[in-house]
Every structure is written in structure tokens, then in C-alpha cells.
Design a protein around this nucleic acid. Structure first.
Lengths: 233, 233
DNA sequence: ATATTCAATATTGGATCCAAAATACAATGG
DNA sequence: CCATTGTATTTTGGATCCAATATTGAATAT
């Protein structure tokens, strides 16, 4: 398998663990990913290496290696001798990411439905419980994190590690935009119901049903985001 | 859009242009990609930075940045404090890559069929002519390169740049294994006929027909490779 | 012989320094 | 006032050096 970076990012570590990675590049990678997906570094911003390195208390070397990784993931762009910039997604880009997700996730869910075991099902149920807790508490950030765990747990049950890695990367690249979705209480409600339906179908090994529900789930998110996006493109 | 590296890799530059890139990392990236996809660096090999850097006449810094890019593409793996290794694909890995390609390329071709213009069609025909020339001359390497141009030209007509980038990366990650396919004269014959059929269907805007032909085309390649692979895994 | 400990060596990770390129800005000419 | 040229400054790209970690191999004990 090809794990992109050192610390476990499997079902368990989709957010939780928080001890510092064994190399500075990995530490920086995590910090940068957070800064971008949470919007602290905003789309279009140039990334000034000297300043950022100082802020993170490392030299520019590990920072640059982390940026190369993020470039591969599409979170930043690079121009020779001009540097790195936080990727700015157009509406078309966003639609394309969701189209690709549609194709990959449908297949991942289809396979997962036939293979998912009790352990993974329970992990998904646990994640769903956390989604509902966070929603009740109005904690948007926690809800997004738990939501991600929920979906990744299912995808990982597909037994297709490369596919999961690609899906995860696609999620990362739109995190900054998706966060708005959970702001709406109505959306939070709907997410919960759709998750419950999906879980139910997975328990019954209804692959096509699960695929359908999760496709609708995604479609709701994308239309909601499209409505908001024109502000940033 | 998100172009992975500086020099044009579009329809034009899928192989041709050959002047040295503006940065050492990009130069090294190209050399490394070649070394891996042609099998000069073999799957499982550790990548000794000092030696390789000296061979390419650069320092380890640009080499390491190039390796990070390749890590993102799945051509090499990385372990903290142990270094980079040429990715070794198992049979399952290979099947997974082809499954993902199946999903993405089907959609890309479907869209391309509805949008492809005269210019792109002619570019594809030109690439196909080069495929046939190379096949006649028995030049396996040239045939692989022209074949790639043929397919990428079609994919690019989809108007989905991110998708094309992902497909290209997937091709890269199996290049080292695919080369064997063109060794067989019978396979070369079949490739040519399937390409002609696909071109014909595209000209008539028959999306589903083109998707079907190219899926079969892919399937032939994967079964041929599967038969050979057990030697290396 | 096999396993274990500890030193010697090789290799990667990161910081600093200098070179090269791009950008910002002032001076000059139209 | 606007455009243009040349210069100063900023920023990135890359080389070298040192530190941290992993690997190797010899010596010792079981």
C-alpha cells in the first residue's frame, strides 16, 4: 500500500491522535493542511516561505517538501521561481471534483456493501453517533470531522486502499469550501437522516441502495456549496 | 487549473519537447520518472539520494523535492528516516489501478465524445498514425509513447483537466509494467484495430460505443499484464 | 550455532548560506 | 500623465554542512 505520510491515517487516526510527527516535514504538512482546509490561508494567497517557516519554527527545507506534497494533492499550485499559492477553485473545478468523487465513491460503496464486517459497521455507527452529538452541540468543526470518519470508514471497507487515498485527497481539496454546508441547521438534520439510511442499507448489504442514498447525500452538499461559492471564485 | 509541473505536458508535450526545464527539481523529476517507468530503477529498489544526486549532477535538495512529487503520484513510497523506495505493485494493486482507470476513463471518453472538435480529432488521428508507424518499425518504446498521446488527446477533449491529471498519474504508475504488452506482435495488431474503431465511433459522436471499445482495449491490456506479472511481485 | 549488545558506518533530515530569478520602485523620456 | 528603462529589494532555488536516525557488523554471552 502507499500511505502518503507517516502517522496512521486509518479509521482510528482520522483526526484524534495529536502527538508531533517524527519529521518536521510531516508536522508542517499537517499544519499547512489544517491552515488551508480551515481557510486560515485563503484561496489565491501566495505562500511566503520565509515567514511561514519562521512561524512554524522550522527552516524552509521541510516546508518546501510539505508544499510539494500539497501540490500533488491539489491544495496548492506551484509556478517555477514564483512560488506556491493556495489553490483557488472555480465553480467548474468544484463540479469536477464532485464528479470524480461520484465515480470513485459509488464504486467504493458498492464494494464496501458486499464486504463490510461487524467491526467496520460498528466503527461507522460510532462515527455517526459522534456526528449526531456534534450536531446537537452545534459544533460544526467536530461534526465535519466525525462526518469524515463516517464516510472514510465505509470507503475503507471496500478493500481498495489506493481508491480511498484518492478519495481522501479529493475531500481535502474541497474542505475549505464544504465547511459552510454544516452551518445550516437544516443541512445538519438532513445529513443525519441520510447517514442513518445509508447505515441501514449497508447492514442489509443493499449495495445499490447505499450507493443511491450516498449519491443523493453528495448531491445535496454540492448544490448547497454551489449556491454559496460565487462569493469567492 | 492545476498543472503538476512547469513544462507543458499537454497534447503537444506528451513526449516531444526536450529542452532542460527551468529548475533542477523539474529536470530531476523527468529523469526519475523515466528511470522508473522504463524499469531502469526497479520496483522495490531503495533510492540512494547521494549517489543518484551525484549521477544527475545536482544536490540532494531538488532530488528530494522531485521524490516528494513522485510519492504523491504513487511511483515511490516513503518511510521516515528510511527513505524512498520504488513502488512495488502487487497484482491487487495493479487490478485496483485498472479499476480506477476504468471508472475515470469511461466518463472522460463519454464527455469527450460529445465535445471533441476537429482539431483534437486530427491530433488523435496523427497520434494514431504514429502508433502505426512505430508498430511497423517494431519500435516498442515509440509505440508506447504515441499510444499515450492518442489516449490523452481524447481524454483532454473531455474538458476535465483534473480528471486528466489523475488518469495520467495512474498511467505513470503502471508504465513499468505495461511496457511488456507491446512486445507481443499480436497485441500490437489488436491495439491498432481497436484505436481505429474508437476513432471511428468518436467521429460519429457515439459515446457509448467509444466507451465500450476503449474498455475492451483496457481489459485486453490488463489480462495480458496479469499473465506476465507473477514474475515480479 | 544463535541471540544480544554495543560500537562504527551509512543514510536521511534539516539549517544555513549563497546564487538566480522575479518583483517593486525610482528615475528618465516621451 | 503614461510608458519604459534600469536598479534595489524581495523571494525562490539550490549547495553545503551538521545533526539525528537507522543499519551494519563485530564482540560477547547463552
Amino acid at each position: 500500500m502507499t500511505t502518503p505520510e507517516g502517522p496512521a491515517r486509518g479509521v482510528a487516526g482520522e483526526a484524534g491522535g495529536r502527538r508531533r510527527p517524527p519529521t518536521a516535514q510531516q508536522f508542517v504538512l499537517g499544519e499547512l493542511r489544517r491552515a488551508i482546509t480551515t481557510g486560515r490561508l485563503r484561496p489565491g494567497d501566495p505562500i511566503r516561505q520565509e515567514a511561514l517557516a519562521e512561524e512554524l519554527d522550522v527552516s524552509r527545507v521541510p516546508l518546501r517538501e510539505a508544499l510539494k506534497t500539497l501540490q500533488g494533492e491539489g491544495l496548492v499550485t506551484y509556478e517555477a521561481h514564483r512560488g506556491y499559492f493556495v489553490e483557488r477553485l472555480s465553480l467548474d473545478d468544484l463540479r469536477e471534483v464532485y464528479l470524480i468523487r461520484e465515480l470513485l465513491e459509488a464504486e467504493a460503496v458498492r464494494r464496501a456493501a458486499g464486504r463490510i464486517g461487524d467491526e467496520a459497521l460498528r466503527a461507522a455507527e460510532r462515527a455517526q453517533a459522534e456526528v449526531e452529538e456534534a450536531a446537537a452541540a452545534g459544533d460544526v468543526l467536530a461534526m465535519a470531522a466525525a462526518n469524515r470518519r463516517f464516510h472514510m470508514t465505509i470507503f475503507e471497507a471496500s478493500g481498495l486502499p489506493r481508491m480511498v487515498r484518492m478519495i481522501r485527497t479529493l475531500w481535502d481539496s474541497t474542505d475549505a469550501y464544504r465547511s459552510v454546508y454544516y452551518g445550516e441547521p437544516a443541512n445538519r438534520e438532513r445529513v443525519i437522516e441520510e447517514h442513518r439510511a445509508a447505515l441501514d442499507l449497508l447492514r442489509r448489504r443493499d449495495a445499490e441502495g447505499a450507493v443511491r442514498v450516498l449519491a443523493a447525500h453528495r448531491a445535496h452538499a454540492v448544490t448547497a456549496i454551489e449556491a454559496v461559492l460565487p462569493g469567492t471564485p
